[in-house]
Write a protein that binds this DNA or RNA. Structure first.
Lengths: 135, 135
DNA sequence: TGAAAAGTCTACCAAATCAATAGGATAAAT
DNA sequence: ATTTATCCTATTGATTTGGTAGACTTTTCA
């Protein structure tokens, strides 16, 4: 299942991207328009900022804004930051690889074989979609 | 993340499939060979039986065995039984569809648009893989 | 200069889910 | 009758998830 965090994060990014100008948008506005708990959204936008997707300004007229062009934001990076590894199992993860403790041989592991394909297919989707593509 | 339940279930199915004969195999043997908690595996094999993948026999010489030929067991059905919906979000699920409470219009939802592609690509992998394929 | 606006940060909490365990009930074989 | 092995229910401990509370900091503007 996709976590609410990722879902809300994606919606917020899409909302910001749909704004032609790159003026700051308040958390409250995004939360209201996208039906998201404001406090929860706060923490999500914070991690998006800390990971280089968003900029922010405090005080009156402040808010969050996109730092990059939507077409330069691949879904791979968004998903990795919000949802974590794209692979469903650490032993097939590119960025978060870990061997399975219980599995003596990856090459002959049925789960490994299947999940490798699933990872590749998911990766292809995320790589071919930027924020601009899903608006 | 893939649940341990699914992981263990897949391993158990693969173990049974790798046995040429379709003689019953005891839970204890599968648990030992695949490094799985026996009690946990019990409940997993039980649901696999209730869902028509396995047959069982009690008493001495009993155990679990595959009911169908491995090449007639598509990963779609295994995943749906063990892991649940293949879609990461209910609003793009074929078998477990549910609208999002917060989303006014699916057609214009960025999450929907992306997750639809992810579902399709995962589905394609699962459909093209039978138990026989991942041995 | 000070009040209001808005993001930042830390801590906490309730509910759900996950992985596993315990222990007895049932059925089959010998 | 005894042993073997699955069947079933209940419980538990740990972790994750989604969300809340509240104080702090920075910026704007009257």
């Amino acid at each position: 299942m996709l976590s609410k965090k990722t879902k809300y994060g994606l919606k917020a990014l899409a909302y910001l991207a749909s704004r032609k100008d790159r003026q700051p948008v308040q958390i409250a506005e995004i939360a209201r328009e996208e039906n998201i708990s404001q406090k929860f959204l706060e923490s999500i936008l914070l991690t998006l900022r800390k990971n280089g997707f968003l900029g922010s300004r405090k005080g009156k007229g402040g808010g969050y804004y996109l730092i990059k062009d939507p077409k330069d934001i691949p879904m791979t990076s968004v998903m990795r930051v919000l949802e974590g590894p794209i692979a469903m199992v650490p032993c097939v993860s590119l960025n978060f690889y870990e061997p399975c403790a219980d599995c003596p041989d990856e090459a002959s592991c049925a789960v490994h074989k299947l999940m490798l394909q699933v990872r590749d297919s998911a990766l292809e989707v995320y790589r071919h979609n930027t924020l601009a593509d899903i608006l």
